[in-house]
């Protein structure tokens, strides 16, 4: 695996099993319009058989990012060393350009709720998470990126904004960010902050990757469902993001009601167009 492509640039998709046949047997080489893939790490840790064969065949054709959902960086449970070993073994095999997880916790007392639960945005949380990011980066031998999750509640004890929390965290722990533009929009709507303040407040030079996804607007709150196309206001916010940050590897996540690849690639072309326009507009 010496000839693998190392860097992430351009526009990618979350790799989902229903697309394996089209990607691997429907075409030779790369699918037009897809520059890279992101895989859910947990789906391939200690896994073999057809899923791993398919994954490695995709890896031969595309650069990759690894995205985890169970690191539980904010939990007060001890870090799961077995999990970190598995994560490192997978990273050694895939040589991903980015290894990411979420700013969240997923369970306590040994239980995993398999959800991205919100942390109180306090100095206590900040110190706790920064310390653990350091341990994870030592265990993996590389930097990780943390993603802003969609949240539905905030805590009485919150004393920091999420963007200040992330700024302090990246500086203190020397880690990177995965910016989910849809999640900024969702959380801004749910909690009544200004998404522009968020964009202005995060350290742009730490952003390694961008996520886009669809959501479900219930009138008084938005749920991050990943089951629909990206909505126009999120596209606008994406343009704002690129105007501020310059070009960033960007991908679309779809986890339910997964359409044929063509449909997602068409949506991805919109990201490409908007990004190009934003970069040109910012330069003018």
């Amino acid at each position: 695996m010496t000839d693998m492509i190392e860097s992430l640039s351009g526009f990618g998709l979350g790799l989902r099993p229903p697309h394996f046949p089209a990607l691997l047997d429907g075409i030779e080489g790369q699918w037009p319009g897809i520059d890279w893939f992101e895989v859910i790490s947990e789906n391939y840790i200690d896994v073999g058989g057809m899923p791993m064969r398919n994954l490695m065949r995709v890896r031969e054709r595309y650069p990759m990012a690894m995205h985890g959902v169970s690191l539980s960086i904010g939990s007060t449970d001890p870090l799961d060393r077995d999990y970190l070993r598995g994560l490192k073994a997978l990273a050694d095999r895939l040589e991903p350009a980015v290894v990411s997880d979420h700013l969240c916790w997923t369970g306590a007392h040994g239980i995993n709720l398999h959800d991205l639960l919100p942390l109180p945005l306090t100095e206590e949380s900040l110190a706790h998470v920064a310390d653990r990011v350091g341990q994870v980066q030592d265990a993996l031998g590389r930097r990780i990126a943390l993603e802003n999750a969609s949240t539905y509640v905030t805590y009485d004890s919150d004393s920091l904004t999420e963007w200040d929390f992330l700024s302090a965290l990246t500086a203190r722990a020397d880690c990177d960010l995965l910016l989910d533009v849809n999640n900024i929009y969702v959380s801004a709507f749910n909690h009544g902050f200004d998404a522009q303040d968020y964009l202005a407040g995060i350290p742009g030079d730490r952003v390694r990757q961008i996520h886009l996804a669809g959501h479900e607007n219930n009138g008084d709150h938005i749920v991050d469902t990943h089951d629909a196309p990206v909505v126009d206001p999120v596209w606008d916010l994406y343009s704002d993001t690129i105007r501020r940050l310059g070009p960033v590897p960007t991908m679309i996540e779809r986890d339910a009601k997964i359409p044929p690849l063509e449909e997602l690639v068409a949506e991805l072309q919109r990201a490409r167009r908007l990004s190009d326009n934003a970069v040109r507009g910012a330069a003018a």
Binding site: D115, V153, D156, H221
Partner: peptide, 17 residues
């Protein structure tokens, strides 16, 4: 009792689970 906002939306987490 410890939430500033979104108490009614706790159900999003519960339903999702």
């Amino acid at each position: 009792g410890h939430l500033a906002q979104g108490g009614p939306f706790l159900k999003v987490y519960g339903n999702g689970y």
